[in-house]
């Protein structure tokens, strides 16, 4: 098993080297470089503005140049945000994200395995249904969801956010995992079958270990989406102790209207956990964002 994995990795890195061959063709493209830096400015200015304002003095905001660093930077705004139940919102976001992602990835992995290896009609139909789900604008379900969550007495609970988040994440997660599991060589299943392994055994000791890169990918991708989700919290929760971070940002904006540095400090703080994930797992995240949508 270990050797197969290594072989796979070697094959992959060899393929990457092959493609990297293009890099040798060096004739600097000044026009592209120039365009690249213009685009950088467009992307960076708003982000720079968020950060620089968040460490500025509140009193300076209305008088100074908003794009120049403050002469006496301060972390007061961060303190103000942290003192305003930030950790409660952070905890809510963590609970919702972790629960949604763990369940989504677990059940999607099972489904993807069945979809790749089973010929059953119901399985085919399920996959078609998931593919169709990719084309449905899911925002359209928010009113009936509001009704259902109310009927189930789940309104204003974290579970109200978790359950639909899972459902909406399933189609793309299954699609990414199916694309990956399809590439696992059939001989591996054959040899395990010869050894008398059950399907659960194959799932646990073949699918899960071999799919690890894809699992990392869908985990990051879904974590990003659930963490940043705004519509469900807006519609399905109400009380401050059930607030997740994006909604908290929105209410901070109402609460701190004139304290722009504090609002933007909240933006920075709410992005920080995902930023750490991005720095640690950019490769997987980037792979994941593209894996589901073809090459």
């Amino acid at each position: 098993m270990a050797t197969t994995l290594q072989e796979r990795r070697r094959a992959v890195s060899a393929a990457e080297r092959g493609r990297a061959g293009r890099g040798r063709r060096v004739r600097p493209n000044y026009l592209a470089g120039l365009g690249g830096f213009v685009w950088l400015a467009i992307i960076i200015v708003p982000i720079y503005y968020i950060v620089i304002t968040s460490v500025g003095q509140q009193s300076d905001f209305y008088t100074g140049n908003p794009l120049l660093p403050s002469s006496n930077p301060t972390l007061d705004s961060y303190q103000a945000v942290l003192d305003n139940d930030f950790f409660l919102y952070l905890a809510n976001s963590l609970v919702v994200t972790v629960a949604s992602v763990v369940v989504t990835v677990g059940i999607s992995l099972m489904a993807a395995y069945a979809i790749v290896r089973s010929r059953a009609r119901v399985v085919r139909l399920t996959f078609s249904l998931f593919l169709l789900g990719l084309a449905i604008p899911l925002q359209a379900t928010i009113i009936p969801l509001y009704y259902m969550i109310g009927q189930a007495h789940l309104y204003d609970t974290l579970l109200a956010l978790i359950l639909p988040s899972i459902a909406f994440a399933i189609p793309i997660t299954v699609l990414i995992l199916v694309n990956f599991i399809r590439d696992i060589p059939g001989e591996l299943f054959e040899s395990m079958r010869v050894d008398g392994a059950s399907h659960w055994r194959m799932f646990l000791s073949l699918i899960i270990p071999l799919s690890r890169p894809a699992i990392a990918t869908v985990t990051l991708y879904n974590a990003l989406n659930v963490w940043n989700g705004f519509l469900f919290p807006l519609v399905l929760t109400q009380s401050p102790d059930k607030r997740v971070l994006p909604l908290a940002l929105w209410t901070f904006q109402g609460q701190f209207t004139i304290n722009v540095p504090a609002i933007l400090a909240a933006v920075v703080l709410s992005t920080l956990p995902i930023f750490v994930l991005y720095v640690l797992g950019r490769r997987q995240l980037v792979a994941g964002l593209t894996a589901g949508f073809g090459k």
Binding site: I47, I50, N228, F230, P246, T271, I274, Y278
Partner: peptide
Amino acid sequence: LYFLPLILSSAA
């Protein structure tokens, strides 16, 4: 750097 907007929430 280009991909940074991907990690910001719509609210942010």
